[in-house]
Nucleic acid binder design. Structure first.
Length: 305
DNA sequence: AAGAAATGCAACCGCATAGTT
DNA sequence: AAACTATGCGGTTGCATTTCT
């Protein structure tokens, strides 16, 4: 079946919108409301396709749209959300009132990607040094040093390329959410976790990673969409003892996969595969133990232990 | 001052998906 | 269940503006 185009393209206006067109669209939407963009385009007398009308309204004409001047706070939030969500611009924009996915996407590509790129280059140099140290330690039978190197630089795993850096942090965030949920915590309407043990000081501390990105319950559940996959009994370990929560956390699969789409190999966190800790040796016999310990550590903010 | 190159941003395009008939 | 429509999303393009030589 040949898909019909969203609108007739012949004779349609394209390119920049004029002030007159903007005015017509604003007036029409104010009277008739949003939606039914095809009829908007037709009835309002705009010689534009439905998509074009929708885009113009959502990105520029809609009330409450902020123009330019991304603040430092917003930039921080964008960076954090991008680490968590990847190129899910609409989701990110949803957390930034008055900002559009298009604007954030452009901002990321033009400004933040460059910043991250320069960061990445620095990190690459650091990783090279680290890899040499790890190799050296392995060759010389000492792993304490290599562990220390990694512990000192937790955020540079897989740095040559932002995706790997982002991936690890995503894993950390998602796993913390999942750990909390699976440990019986609930999330209130403000995105705050409440522990069945009550919200004591310890609870507050490890909630900051979520509250700091202004999440709400639906958002967390969305991010942690497949958390039930991580509950005990559903997992098997990789043969190489590495674990991966979303199978590489592809942007789309992480968010759109139904639980059945995720294989058991995809379900647990990839944890520093280059190090062979004693814990991992234990987990050769009990793979699930690794994940549970990791969750517990996350819950207690004791990941290094 | 003028042309070239780089940059930023608005808009377009194709695909995916939810909803409707 | 299949066909179709409407809408949303992310990637890409193209143009206007700015900066550099």
């Amino acid at each position: 079946m040949v898909r019909r185009p969203c609108c007739e393209k012949e004779g349609m206006n394209k390119g920049a919108w004029s002030a007159e067109e903007d005015e017509i669209l604003i007036n029409y939407v104010q009277i008739h409301g949003e939606g039914k963009w095809r009829s908007v385009a037709h009835n309002a007398g705009l010689n534009r396709c439905a998509k074009s009308c929708r885009l113009r309204w959502l990105n520029y004409l809609r009330p409450g749209i902020k123009r330019g001047g991304i603040t430092k706070d917003e930039e921080d939030l964008i960076i954090r959300l991008h680490r968590l969500l990847g190129n899910r611009w609409a989701l990110i924009a949803g957390r930034l009132p008055g900002r559009t996915d298009n604007e954030i996407k452009n901002y990321w590509k033009t400004i933040l990607a460059k910043k991250c790129e320069s960061f990445s280059l620095q990190s690459c140099a650091r990783k090279s040094n680290r890899e040499e140290e790890v190799l050296h330690c392995r060759n010389h039978g000492s792993k304490n040093n290599s562990d220390q190197v990694i512990a000192d630089q937790p955020s540079v795993a897989g740095v040559c390329g932002i995706p790997n850096l982002i991936q690890e942090e995503k894993h950390c965030l998602v796993e913390k959410s999942i750990g909390l949920i699976s440990n019986g915590c609930s999330i209130d309407n403000h995105g705050m976790f409440s522990s069945p043990l009550g919200r004591d000081e310890g609870d507050e501390g490890h909630l900051s990673f979520l509250t700091s990105i202004d999440v709400d319950k639906d958002f967390i559940m969305e991010v942690a969409g497949s958390e039930t996959q991580l509950l005990p009994g559903n997992e098997t370990a990789h043969e190489d003892n590495s674990y991966d929560i979303f199978g590489g956390f592809d942007n789309k699969t992480a968010m759109s996969s139904s639980p059945s789409d995720i294989t058991s190999d995809d379900q647990v966190v990839e944890i520093e595969t280059e190090t062979e800790t004693e814990t991992e040796v234990m987990c050769d016999q009990q793979p699930w133990l690794h994940v549970e310990l990791k969750k517990l550590a996350s819950f207690l903010d004791l990941e290094d232990e």
